[in-house]
Each structure stands twice: as C-alpha cells, then as structure tokens.
C-alpha cells in the first residue's frame, strides 16, 4: 500500500456572477476545481505537480495538508485522513506557500523559530540539532538574528523552508516555492530540496510553473488541467511525446544568402543569420540540411531541442487547456 493514496477527489466552488440585466437574482457559477483526481505517492518520492493557473494544484495541496475538506473522494496519508483530526495529522507535514510567510515580520527569525518550537512541542535538544543542521544546509548563519523584513526574497524563502522543516515532517508540500527568485537562489533551493529528500527520505510534492525546477528535481510529474489529471509518469516520457520540433540557428559566409524552404518550416532573421524551427518527423534533418546548403556555404550552425516552457505550452494547447 502506498504512503499517500488519493481516490476520486472532487471539489467544487461556487462563484457569484455579476448580476445580469435580465434576471434580478444573482446566479451562481460552479467551478469544478477537482474532478475525480486519483493518484498514489510512495514514501520518499519527489513529485512535480504542474498545470496552468487555476488547474486545481493549490486546491489539491490544501486538501492534502488538511486546510480544506473535499466534496467527495478519499485521501489517506499513512493511516490518517488529513481533514479529520487535523491537529494530529499536521504534526507530520510541512507546508510552504511561495506567496505567504508564516514567520513574524519584525523580529529576528530565531525568535520565530523558537515560537514554532513551542507550537509543535519540539523537545529542546531535537530542536537544537535540527536547527543547526538546517541552518548549515540552507546557509542561514548570520541571518538567524535578522528580522524577516530586512531580508531579500531568496533569504526569506530559505528562512521559511527552515521554519517549516524544524519539526522533521515526513511530507513537505511546496506551493510555488521558487516564485520570484533569482537564478542563484533558485539553484540553492533546488540543491537543498534534493538534499532533504535524500538525507531524510522526506516525501516532497512540488507545485510550480518553473519547468527547470521540475527537470532538475523530479523524475515523476503529474499534470493537472481543469481539475482533471491528464498525465502521471516520467518527465522524460512526457517531453518525448511533445518534443517534435528542433530549432536551428544558422549563419552563412555571405549575408545575402537566403535559403528556400517548405512552408512547414518557420524562419526568421536574427542578426546576420536565421533562426528556423522544423519538425524532423515531417522534414528529415538530412533533407533540411541539403536545402540549407543550396543557398550558400554555411559558416556556423547549431541545432537545439525545444525550450521546455514551449513544450509545456504546446502540451497544454493539445490537451485543450
């Protein structure tokens, strides 16, 4: 039996429509946030959960972390049901919302941590050990004596992560943790999550829009759209399915050369060269190369796989999202 079991999860929201001119009464609009979503997660997995805005990712996280009650369906984490007996359940989980801070704004984060210690009833020695481990892994050091309001966004996110892991949760839910972070902070965060996952076998469910996050961390992804689960499996398989285009950048010896290509290839000028996109399935690379060479002698040329964000956008489009 797997660690987290989700079966036929449904959640609807009612949104009041603006009063229309014909009818006097306000109409209610139903939004199906989750429709029969089922999945299993094993202990120690690191899973990416993706989908466009409004797909139902946050709703899933909120149900799994005991914040919300679903309309129907079953969820079992270990032997517990999140929304029943919330207090004993949430001892075993950590939640980080990328856009909400749980630490106090105006006091050094060390004060916030010691209050969290009281909230979670963590024994003193366990707390000390865990704090020193986390502050080293997250490189907090001097930051411990700094109030949150004086920190950069990246520092804040690291502090938040530390705060949500002090009680050694078995599962960590992350809702868009890298939102707004710079490259260095993102990389540091990814390294840390990998470390925490391997070192403590912490199960991590990560929702994000940053495909680089997913590619760097998760072997398994779930795709959600309009409240339905559309894909669940290896990231590589998913990419292969949609990865049909290649991008070519090419520069000729003389700038006057213009290749003549079939309509299936898109081409645009870029600097003194061209950027084209083609599909090897419809136009084999050898044929394209022959056509390109007819236009003149090639100085340099690169062939690249498609950017992962384009892939996902295309995937959403094909799935009708």
């Amino acid at each position: 039996m797997s660690y987290i079991q989700v079966r036929d999860l449904c959640k609807r929201f009612y949104v009041r429509k603006k009063r229309s001119s014909e009818s006097f009464l306000r109409e209610k609009e139903t939004i199906q946030a989750l429709a029969d979503v089922s999945f299993d997660i094993d202990r120690g997995e690191l899973i990416g959960y993706i989908g466009p805005n409004g797909a139902g990712k946050s709703t899933t996280v909120k149900i799994l972390s005991g914040i919300m009650t679903p309309d129907s369906g079953e969820v079992r984490v270990g032997s517990q049901i999140p929304w029943k007996d919330r207090k004993s359940y949430v001892k075993h989980i950590g939640v980080v919302f990328g856009q909400r801070m749980q630490l106090w704004w105006d006091v050094p984060i060390l004060d916030s941590y010691s209050l969290l210690k009281d909230i979670y009833r963590i024994p003193e020695d366990a707390y000390r050990k865990r704090l020193s481990e986390l502050s080293e892994a997250l490189n907090l050091g001097d930051l411990l004596r700094t109030p949150l309001r004086q920190m950069s966004l990246g520092q804040r996110m690291r502090s938040e992560l530390c705060g949500s892991l002090l009680h050694r949760p078995e599962i960590l839910f992350l809702d868009e943790p890298t939102i707004g972070l710079d490259a260095v902070s993102k990389l540091a965060l990814r390294d840390f999550l990998k470390w925490e996952n391997q070192e403590h076998r912490t199960t991590i469910l990560l929702t994000t829009h940053d495909m680089e996050d997913i590619a760097a961390l998760c072997s398994r992804v779930m795709v959600l759209g309009h409240g339905r689960k559309l894909y669940d499996g290896q990231l590589q398989d998913l990419l292969r399915r949609y990865d049909r285009r290649r991008t070519v950048e090419i520069r000729y010896d003389r700038s006057g050369c213009i290749p003549v290509l079939p309509a299936s290839v898109t081409m645009q000028r870029e600097g003194d060269g061209f950027r084209l996109a083609y599909q090897p399935e419809t136009l084999p690379t050898a044929e394209l190369l022959a056509l390109l060479q007819q236009a003149g002698s090639i100085r340099e040329m690169t062939v690249q796989p498609q950017n992962i964000d384009y892939l996902i956008a295309e995937m959403y489009r094909e799935m009708g999202l």
């Binding site: 972390s65 949430v90 989980i93 939640v95 919302f97 979670y120």
Partner: peptide, 18 residues
C-alpha cells in the same frame, strides 16, 4: 481574506488559540 488562516491550519494547535 488574505489566506493567512491557511498557515495557522497547518499547525498542530487549535485555530482560536492561534
């Protein structure tokens, strides 16, 4: 309104207490 209550719900304590 701001969803700050969500964070309290993830702590193992009563809501009114928090």
């Amino acid at each position: 309104r701001t969803g700050q209550l969500d964070l309290l719900l993830t702590h193992p304590r009563g809501i009114l207490t928090q």
